[in-house]
């Protein structure tokens, strides 16, 4: 799974920018094309790119399977708890209780921003875990 020195260096230098682009997609989901799932897949793809160029063992030391699994569970539980918070504050499930700003601003989505962030974290962790599982399976049960 190793690659040449050129690819490893370039991927290492590009990695923060790919994650930044993914975070931009997540946070501007209600203003431009993007959203939780799309940004999460971009961040997950960045981790997969690291795994393809540097080898799966070194990537797994940095992004451990257990930590990603915990992030995934926390992401989905945050989503459900935000829904329950909305019920406790009197609106219906997943209803909006934050004030709406002007259209075009990043604060204009209300609760959508937090949903997008929770789903983005969850999808990024999920895609990485799927990749780890498919790569590391070597015939043992």
């Amino acid at each position: 799974m190793g690659s040449s020195k050129i690819i490893r260096t370039i991927v290492q230098k590009l990695f923060p920018f790919i994650v930044l682009f993914g975070l931009y997609l997540i946070s501007h989901g209600h203003l431009s094309p993007g959203g939780g799932f799309q940004g999460g897949v971009v961040i997950g793809t960045a981790i997969i790119l690291l795994a393809l160029s540097h080898g799966i063992e070194k990537t797994e030391k940095k992004f451990e399977n257990k930590r990603l699994s915990m992030l995934e569970k926390l992401g989905i539980l945050t989503f459900i708890f935000l829904g329950f918070l909305s019920i406790f504050l009197g609106h219906s499930f997943l209803g909006n209780f934050l004030p709406l700003g002007k259209p075009g601003q990043i604060t204009s989505g209300g609760l959508m921003l937090f949903f997008n962030i929770a789903i983005g974290i969850e999808v990024a962790a999920g895609v990485s875990i799927i990749f780890y599982a498919l790569v590391k399976y070597r015939g043992e049960i």
Partner: peptide, 10 residues
């Protein structure tokens, strides 16, 4: 279907 920045109506 994207609103331009700076439009005041939704």
């Amino acid at each position: 279907p994207i609103l331009e920045k700076g439009t005041t109506d939704a």
